[in-house]
Design a protein around this nucleic acid. Structure first.
Lengths: 347, 347
DNA sequence: GTGAAAGCGCTAACAA
DNA sequence: TTGTTAGCGCTTTCAC
């Protein structure tokens, strides 16, 4: 038999007082409403004793607030995003907010649906890594005065709060590192995407090459293709551009595709590729040789994001000011990017 | 300015009809209530035109249903769980249910909190990979007539619906495979956990060894330890048990720890270890040599789980019957488990 | 200091 | 065939 859920009325009637009083006490307004300490304690005790919990749905209906923040990431199974999600959740929880998270899979249609679902549920705030093409929905959320924080990327043509990392600068440094290690023909493998973070990484790559008068090799992968197809695309690109001696991949999963592509390649007599990738990944540490990566400051990103939302949630005057944060990323040099001669010694 | 949200009243008044009529039409009861097709269409059109969406919160408060299913997995960033989550979500979505998911991190305290939060939100059903120690909470959900489906593991002392794989049989086969490849001293690295799936895997291991009169080497890792500590534990275990020639790890992440441990080891003159793991992982395919794994039938598991919940949700008479499903897993043989002599040829 | 009552937006029994 | 109305459980204004 389903336990009949207790309501505020049960508490009130059990103590022969009105539900108003109970409500005031429960909402910490006992002092303000000058309710006797005696009664306050009696109520609090009974509530604890019988395990009464206010019905959140009713509370939401009444107040219009849900104490829920929606977190939409590109892909929750990507370590970068799942780590950010975990940290954001931890912090939100401390402030009494719940996080409900979901993946857009970079699909604007799916993202739109999710935003709609969140709107239906009247969630209080939004944290989003937006796929291309949902500018209108984001703008509409902002126009409706919802706190919205973008992260990982943003729309250059939209005035929004966002937290990103310095994609340009950190890619520039990674590529420069490869050049310093003696690589001359460095391929940049990326997605065919105009998202800000990808554009910036590409820009950093091009600048580093230009500064050293080297020739760029850019391969853009269709981004709704299967993994297998992409691996094959990389392999055939490398086969065609046979002078390429190093590879930089623009995300961690492209990095894993790259590894797989290279494995399928016949590189006998050619030596192996210098390798580095944006975004760290478990695989990169374990691979032989371990792979150099630009690691994002997950902790700082999460912190910045959650602080922004909570600030806006707690003080709507801040909601008008647009705040943007750009954090530095860190280059973790591992064996894969060392010059070939060094490598032979190292391994 | 926040767009004032439309309510059912706005629709009704705009058409000069009562909100009841609108409600009936919106809930597909137009036919049943014999509302004229004309009016029905007028309402439907207006609703679409102005983009009216019923307030879910109010709907929930009234009906006591949320159309939300809670999915609590051990760790959403583990590929196995994130894949299951994605598939479950897809299927639920087709039936008009939303999934809200979260990770227990195998922490009973966190799991309890999450269950409480879900209860507060009155979600309709529960899908859970339970950590040890929340039997009472699960039982209480069931007593309160909520649909509850466990998966990946279950409590042997609790009569619950669950979907698991045949951990015993599939581990038995994997170990037998290692034996057939000529390995004689096979270590089994697992967590110090009494969860059903771990116990079964261990049992399969022991039986396979017993059938071949081989000596077991079981290493149990403390499961709230840091990764670094565990890696080190494995390394020192292997150093001590120097006769071990093959390793089977009981989960995919233990597998990655194992790899790291071996890399830190000095195995000169010893040849390398035969390797296999429960659960597949991206790393396993890419590693050199690629690592043999017992792959769980993610698709089938998801399908079975979601079917169970929806069945119960849609027909509460089924809620009483306890259903359990055990699916077979698949052994994917890769280079790491081949006999050493074969290997030298293969690679 | 405390309580009565309105109302958040919706569903559905009952009336007409 | 359609409308009136009573709540779902809560917050909060206003009255006493």
């Amino acid at each position: 038999m389903k336990k009949k859920k207790l309501s505020i009325r049960d508490i009130a009637s059990q103590l022969n007082i009105s539900i108003t009083t109970v409500s005031f006490i429960l909402n910490g307004k006992a002092k303000e409403k000058r309710i006797s300490e005696d009664l306050t304690n009696k109520v609090l005790n009974l509530v604890k004793e019988v395990g009464y919990k206010p019905n959140q749905i009713a509370q939401s209906l009444r107040t219009g607030k849900t104490k829920i923040i929606g977190l939409m990431v590109e892909d929750i199974s990507n370590v970068f995003f799942s780590n950010v999600a975990r940290l954001i959740e931890e912090n939100a929880h401390k402030k009494g907010y719940k996080i409900i998270y979901c993946s857009t899979e970079n699909n604007p249609e799916k993202a739109r649906e999710l935003i709609n679902m969140f709107r239906d549920w009247n969630i209080d705030g939004y944290i989003i890594t937006p796929p291309a093409g949902i500018e209108d929905e984001i703008q509409s959320l902002i126009s409706d005065n919802y706190p919205v924080i973008l992260f990982d990327r943003y729309y250059t043509n939209l005035k929004t709060n966002y937290v990103v990392i310095d994609n340009y600068e950190s890619t520039y440094r990674a590529i420069t590192h490869l050049i310093e290690q003696g690589y001359k023909d460095i391929a940049f493998i990326t997605l065919d995407s105009r998202q800000s973070q990808m554009e910036e990484r590409l820009r950093g790559y091009k600048k580093a090459l230009a500064d050293h008068k080297l020739k760029p090799y850019v391969k853009r992968l269709a981004f709704d293709e299967s993994k297998e197809k992409n691996v094959q695309q990389i392999a055939s690109y490398l086969k065609k551009q046979s002078e390429v001696d190093a590879i930089f991949t623009a995300t961690n999963y492209i990095g894993t595709w790259g590894i797989e592509a290279i494995q399928n390649l016949d590189t006998k007599g050619k030596g192996r590729y210098g390798l580095a990738s944006f975004d760290d990944h478990d695989i990169f540490k374990l691979y032989n040789p371990p792979i150099t990566a630009v690691a994002q400051p997950v902790e700082e990103i999460s912190q910045a994001v959650i602080k922004m939302v909570l600030d806006q949630l707690e003080d709507s005057s801040k909601a008008k000011a647009v705040e943007t944060i750009t954090l530095p990323a860190k280059l973790i040099v591992r064996g894969s990017s060392l010059s070939r001669t060094d490598l032979d010694v190292v391994i």
